[in-house]
């Protein structure tokens, strides 16, 4: 069954998500990858405001390709998440509730998801042209000089993702791999 969820994510929405759930996300999400995460964390540490309200927010780890004429965004699939792991716990502490990316997270991030009640979604890596269809609008809101790494506000409708890590500590990567391992 596919669950439809909307942003910002509430405590209740997060509590209802479990590893293995397929979801369609509608609302506003924010992009950020390697350099943007460094900027965001530097801003928090310097006591400055973030370019978006982190409470209940979802960050999508993506550096889209440029928008061709007539389209709001270029291809926009997830990038590998672990590179953001050293920054993610602080963002969750500030209210971040969701992260969309691909690939395994490290233990401090898994621990932070339980502590701050947040969830990690996987989008299909390399399905970038398909995913772009669910992005209706995109605008750069910070760090424009970073090019593909700038922070964008995306309006999404039925953005497809899968819950990998829920706030209860379940991990679909571990579960799925164990189920099909035949070594």
């Amino acid at each position: 069954m596919v669950k439809k969820i909307t942003t910002p994510l509430t405590e209740e929405t997060v509590a209802g998500l479990h590893a293995g759930d397929s979801v369609l996300i509608t609302g506003t999400i924010y992009t950020g990858r390697d350099l943007a995460h460094k900027e965001l964390v530097d801003a928090i540490e310097a006591g400055k405001d973030l370019p978006f309200d982190p409470h209940g927010a979802i960050i999508y780890y993506v550096g889209p390709s440029p928008a061709p004429p007539g389209k709001p965004i270029g291809s926009a699939g997830p990038t590998t998440s672990y590179r953001m792991d050293s920054f993610a716990p602080l963002l969750m502490e500030k209210g971040l509730k969701g992260m969309i990316g691909k690939g395994n997270r490290t233990q401090p991030v898994l621990d932070a998801m339980k502590k701050y009640r947040a969830v990690y979604f996987a989008a299909v890596g390399g399905a970038a042209a398909l995913i772009a269809k669910s992005i209706k609008d995109a605008r750069v809101i910070a760090y424009e000089d970073l090019g593909p790494e700038a922070v964008r506000e995306l309006k999404v409708e039925d953005f497809p993702a899968i819950v990998v890590n829920d706030m209860y500590g379940e991990d679909l990567y571990e579960k799925g791999m164990a189920e099909y391992r035949r070594e």
Binding site: G103, N104, L172, Y173, M177, Y180, R182
Partner: peptide, 10 residues
Amino acid sequence: KLGIGPQGLG
């Protein structure tokens, strides 16, 4: 036989 599967989800 590793069980990783498409996108590592098994």
